[in-house]
């Protein structure tokens, strides 16, 4: 990774963090748990990294590939489970209202 590239990525990091800080304000307490659950599903974005690591043919580094496949399984659990659980919570929420 070149220095220029790193600087661009740092810009991305700082700006995205700022947006993250600003997004959460005045959230009603009833939404705390669903919001936590929803952002937990988003943190499953590491599935993208898992696909990249699991993608290549085993070649010289079979262990890298195996680690990538295991990562993919757990990341999928995080993503799919996370979204379904969040949806179920919010569904309940609507019925109550």
């Amino acid at each position: 990774m070149s220095i220029e590239n790193l600087i661009v990525l740092l810009y991305v990091l700082v700006l995205a963090s700022y947006v993250g800080f600003e997004l959460i304000a005045k959230v009603p307490p009833t939404l705390h748990t669903p919001l936590m659950s929803g952002s937990n599903a988003i943190s499953g974005i590491t599935i993208v990294g898992a696909i990249i690591c699991a993608g290549p043919l085993p070649g010289e580094f079979p262990l890298s590939k195996i680690l990538g496949m295991v990562a993919l399984f757990f990341a999928t659990l995080n993503v799919v489970g996370g979204y379904v659980v969040t949806d179920r919570m919010l569904q309940m929420f609507k019925k109550k209202k």
Binding site: M1, N5, L6, L9, V12, L13, A16, S17, Y18, V19, G20, F21, L23, I24, A25, V27, H32, L35, M36, S39, N40, I42, S43, I45, T46, V48, G49, I52, C53
Partner: peptide, 22 residues
Amino acid sequence: FVLNNQVLIIAGALVGASGIIL
């Protein structure tokens, strides 16, 4: 950062920052 992938950085930072506030 390890994989040089923007969407991982953006989504990760969003969750990291909003998670701390939450």
